[in-house]
Every structure is written in C-alpha cells, then in structure tokens.
C-alpha cells in the first residue's frame, strides 16, 4: 500500500534521514522504532508531504505521491497525526473531529453526525461538547486519532499516540487501534511503548541516526544486537549478553 524508497533529508549540516526505505502492506500494522532524534518524525513529515524530501520517492496505492502537498495526499487516503498534539483549541471535541469529517461529507449535519459516531467509537462520547482545550493529554492524543479517522483515510501514520499515557489508557488505545485495523484500516506507527508495539505490530522498522538499521517482527528486533546498541549505546548488547550468562 505504501512504498517508501531511499528518502533523505538534511537540515543544514545535520542529516536527519539518510536513504530510508520501508513498505506497508494493506491491512497491517507496522511499527517505526528508534531512539530520540533518530529521524522518525522527519520521515512522517516527508511521507505526508509536509516537507519536501531531498531525495527518494513515496508511492501510495501504486501512485507516485512524491512532492504532493498534504491535502492532496490526504484526499488519496493517507493521513498523519502529530507527536505534539495540535488540537483546534477553541473548538469543541465534536467540532474538531468534524473538521476531519468534512473531507468527504460536505454537509454540516452529516459531518457532525460522522464526528459524533467516530467520537463515540473512540470512547469520547461524553466529551463531545467539551472544548478541546479542556482535554487531558490522553484525551488530546485520542482526539488526534479521532480526527484522522474521521477523514475516512485508510492509511494512518500515528506519531507516538501512546506517549505520556498511563498503562490502563495504553491498554484501552491498543484495543481501539486493533479494532480499527479489523475494520479495514492500515497503520504505520511511531511508538516508544514497546509493550504496545509487541502486541500490535506484525513488522517494525528501526531507524537510528537517520538510517534504517533493521526490520522484521518486533519480537526478533528486540534481540537484534544492532538495535539494542542503538537504544542503549555502544557495547550494550555485549554487556547484556554477559549479564544473561552470569
């Protein structure tokens, strides 16, 4: 469904992403992992058309979408969420979601009712009339997801929707994501919460210092020495091995 080939991006002298490629099959949940500053968010901004890649191409549903503006990409059915949540602070939760719903429902009543349905499905039924600015961080993360879903997009790029949530909230959102996937959506998600990645993603990619260093099923990735080193520093894998043997 999504084929990303050799994306590169540098900011001034800093190479944020170098030669990154990845594939997402329709109906799957794919993880994108990596330590802080690895370039994950930058990958998303390039894929979704927010920044122009220096090099590389993106294909979505077989169509070349490299360099298209975000609204065109969204119209084709791919949408990103923001790591730092971006609610429309002055609007209510339902109005926030309705902005997404307007993409395919031009009539206000329809958009509002789609928004209500989506909100209820994501467990936000009681908050629909509250201003978005009054939501907790968990509520705002969920609102990001709800708005994205309301656009009717089939491929959702989620940027750390679980960061800052308590375990019970994580369990809840994992269930919601699985349910949405079963309804026919596809996910590419940046996530630091390993427990969530393990239980959701079939495959995952690991980015370190802008380069893809590994990909495969998450369970295998956590045992991959290069991945462990990326997270814990040089020599960490060897030390862990020794500790395990001792």
């Amino acid at each position: 469904m999504l084929e990303v080939r050799n994306l590169s991006k540098s900011f001034g002298g800093l190479k944020a992403v170098t030669d990154a490629s990845l594939d997402v099959q329709e109906g799957s949940i794919v993880g994108l992992l990596g330590p802080n500053g690895a370039g994950k968010t930058t990958c998303f901004t390039m894929i979704a058309g927010f920044t122009k890649a220096d090099e590389g191409s993106v294909r979505f549903k077989g169509q070349d979408i490299t360099g298209l503006p975000p609204h065109r990409i969204c119209a084709l059915g791919m949408i990103r969420t923001f790591q730092i949540v971006q609610p429309f602070a002055g609007l209510t939760v339902q109005e926030n979601i309705a902005v997404g719903a307007y993409l395919h429902h031009h009539n206000r009543n329809e958009a509002m009712s789609v928004a209500r349905d989506v909100g209820k499905r994501l467990g936000m039924g009681a908050m629909l009339d509250r201003p978005a600015s009054s939501l907790t961080i968990a509520g705002r993360k969920r609102l990001e997801l709800a708005r994205a879903l309301a656009t009717g997009s089939k491929l959702l790029l989620l940027d750390e929707v679980m960061a800052g949530l308590i375990p019970s909230e994580i369990t809840e959102i994992v269930g919601i994501i699985r349910q949405i996937r079963d309804e026919g959506h596809t996910f590419l998600m940046i996530e630091h919460v390993m427990q969530a990645v393990m239980s959701l993603a079939e495959t995952a990619y690991v980015l370190n210092q802008g380069k893809m260093i590994a990909h495969g099923p998450p369970r295998e990735l956590v045992r991959d020495p290069s991945v462990v080193e990326a997270y814990l520093g040089h020599g960490a894998a060897a030390r862990l091995q020794e500790e395990n043997h001792a």
Binding site: C74, I79, F82, P87, F88, G90, G100, R147
Partner: peptide, 15 residues
C-alpha cells in the same frame, strides 16, 4: 476556523 485555530493540523486533515 480550523486554519485560524491551527494551520498545521488543518493541512494534515486535508485542507
């Protein structure tokens, strides 16, 4: 109104 409230979010939502 979405543009006023948050232009980046508006762009992401297909506007």
């Amino acid at each position: 109104i979405a543009v006023r409230e948050n232009e980046d979010a508006a762009r992401a939502l297909g506007i």
